[in-house]
């Protein structure tokens, strides 16, 4: 049928049809390929997170440290945890107290200091530098574990206090530590003296307390 029809057409029209068919085929193949690619990306993003790769850099950073630090690095390898309205989604995420203590000690040692900050290149300082973001990641892991294990609270508060008082520490990090400490003390209904903390840390901690905890 098609051949019969084609016989009656001029050469020019035949070429036109051929071009149309070819173009449609190319577009269709491109769309199908893109859809397949998107599907692959989405599924990999939604897969249970076993983040060997994501933590590769993290492991690398800590491989030269002593055994305590290596032990502390281990829990950071665990899957991410979501604390939803139904509570903890994965009990596997809980650390033991020695591991938590070790992680907290390691974190304190690796908190960025003023010397690190003032040695950065001007371009690195324009946006939040990596050392600030890294500290945020560690503070996040600590907070997550405290939420999961109420028996870590005392140890956690000790850490927050030390961190907020760290004279050569960076102000935003110290302020977030102080804000966490104030929040926890308030939750427990404990009295708390703020005099020993510098004004600039307290002022910024006040800003942090406006956020949800």
């Amino acid at each position: 049928m098609l051949l019969q029809k084609a016989k009656g057409l001029t050469k020019k029209t035949k070429i036109t049809y051929l071009i149309i068919i070819m173009a449609i085929t190319i577009i269709a193949v491109a769309f199908l390929f893109k859809a397949k690619l998107d599907e692959t990306n989405t599924s990999s993003a939604r897969a249970p997170i076993n983040t060997e790769e994501a933590h590769h850099h993290h492991d690398h950073e800590e491989e030269n440290h002593d055994h305590t630090i290596n032990a502390a690095a281990a829990p950071a390898k665990t899957n991410i945890i979501r604390i939803g309205s139904q509570g903890v989604e994965s009990e596997v995420e809980k650390w033991t107290l020695p591991v938590f203590k070790s992680y907290v000690n390691d974190t304190f040692k690796t908190l960025p200091n003023l010397k690190d900050a003032r040695g950065l290149k001007d371009e690195e300082v324009h946006q939040n530098p990596k050392l600030v973001m890294d500290a945020g990641l560690r503070l996040g892991s600590i907070k997550k574990q405290i939420k999961l294990n109420s028996e870590f609270e005392e140890e956690g508060m000790k850490f927050y206090d030390k961190c907020a008082l760290k004279k050569d520490g960076l102000t935003p990090v110290r302020a977030l530590c102080l804000a966490n400490l104030v929040y926890m003390k308030n939750q427990k209904g404990e009295d708390f003296e703020l005099e020993k903390y510098p004004e600039k840390v307290k002022d910024l901690a006040q800003k942090a307390l406006e956020l949800s905890f």
Binding site: I80, I81, R82, I83, N128, V132, M133, A135, G136, L137, L139, G140, S141, K143, K144, K147, L170, T171, P172, V173, A175, L176, L204, K207, A208, L211, S212
Partner: peptide, 18 residues
Amino acid sequence: CDDVVKEKMKVSYLASVD
């Protein structure tokens, strides 16, 4: 956003406010 992410966002916020 989970707690780890929120804590990073908080430190990022404070670092800008500072």
